[in-house]
Amino acid sequence: MKIRQLVVSLFFAAVSLQTSAEELMVAVASNFTAAMKEIAAEFEKTSGHRVKLASGSSGKFYAQIKNGAPFQAFFSADTAKPAALETAGLAVPGSRFTYAVGSLALWSADPSLVDDRASVLREGHFRKLALANPKLAPYGKAAVEVLRNLDLEEATRSRWVQGENIAQTYQFVATGNADLGFVALSQIVRGGQLKEGSAWTVPGDLYSPIRQDAVLLQRGADSKGAVEFLHFLRGDKARAIIESYGYRFPEPH
């Protein structure tokens, strides 16, 4: 009898879990895609919820959300777009927070092309330089800032190839369509080690900090799963994954 009661209890517990589980729609900036896949997998293991990720440029997601895209949370590559959504009443007030601070790197698939002083840029020994569209992507805007501060903006401009987002920019370099390019450090390192090629981690004083904010959108305001997911992002397990991809966190006030 006790065994039968236990089976019945487990059955109803499973049914209850299935009915409370949600499929979350989350928009994430391209640079954070790899880290987010790991984080989402960990969250799914413990929560019972499923996370459906869409990755792309923050600028395009901003426009889509304003036009009614069904996302419940938005992980941007900057602070401005989540703040603007909050001001427009499309995000839950007070839900915005900085989930990571990004780092920029000059990278080539050629293991001997980029040194720790980025000499290749100054000497001009390259055909094409990839960077993300600075009008759409914060990492592209940072890349232009770096070139300007190095007094190389005009000297290199004719050799720029622009990706719609940082993922496409990475592909330009990985496939050899560009000799080198400005990418997110998170795309080329794992566990603090460069995965392949050669790279220069751009000093932080050459560009404005790339603070990346997340926000709970109004479509997720009544979603227990979405609230839990944003809470999970601030926990130790998620933070360890984020750090393993070369991101930093803002200094505590």
Rank of each mutant, 00 (worst) to 15 (best):
L180N: 01
L194S: 14
V26E: 11
A100N: 13
W160P: 04
K141C: 07
A40S: 13
N149L: 10
Q18M: 12
A40E: 11
V7Y: 15
V28E: 07
L147W: 06
F172A: 00
M36K: 01
A29M: 08
I188M: 06
D110Q: 04
G89H: 02
R122W: 13
L131V: 06
N177Q: 13
D179C: 07
L152T: 02
G59S: 14
A226N: 03
E44F: 10
A132F: 01
K45C: 05
G124F: 14
R234G: 03
L217R: 02
A142P: 02
S186P: 01
R219E: 09
K52L: 12
G94D: 08
A240T: 13
P209Y: 14
E196M: 07
K224I: 08
L233F: 05
A137P: 01
S198N: 09
F74C: 04
A118H: 09
E123R: 14
A80M: 14
F11L: 15
P93R: 06
F182S: 08
S95K: 00
Q5Y: 11
G140W: 08
A73W: 06
E86H: 03
I241C: 03
L147Y: 10
G197R: 06
V144A: 13
R211I: 01
T46I: 13
L185F: 02
R157S: 15
V28T: 03
P70D: 13
G225N: 07
K52R: 15
F32E: 14
P138R: 06
E196W: 00
A73E: 11
F74D: 05
A34F: 11
H125K: 12
F11K: 00
A88Q: 10
L216Q: 04
G56F: 14
D222Q: 15
G89S: 07
G94Y: 02
V7L: 15
E153Q: 12
L147E: 09
F11I: 07
I39F: 10
S16C: 13
E153F: 15
H49S: 14
A69Q: 05
D236R: 14
T169V: 06
D116W: 08
G246Q: 09
Q193K: 15
V101E: 15
W200N: 03
A240G: 01
A29P: 03
I210A: 12
T87Q: 15
S223Q: 02
G102M: 13
R190V: 03
Q64C: 01
A109S: 07
Q193V: 13
A13W: 09
Q5H: 05
G94F: 07
A167R: 04
N31D: 15
R96K: 08
P93N: 08
S223G: 00
G94A: 00
V227G: 11
L90N: 01
A91Q: 11
T169K: 11
Y247F: 15
V183I: 07
K45I: 06
H49Q: 09
Q193P: 05
Y245V: 00
K195D: 09
I3S: 14
R96Q: 10
K37Q: 15
A238G: 00
I65W: 11
V7T: 09
A14H: 04
F97A: 04
A100D: 09
K195I: 14
P111V: 04
A21K: 07
A105K: 03
W160I: 08
A41F: 10
M1E: 14
Q18R: 11
K135V: 07
P250S: 07
A83Y: 13
A54C: 02
L150P: 08
I210D: 14
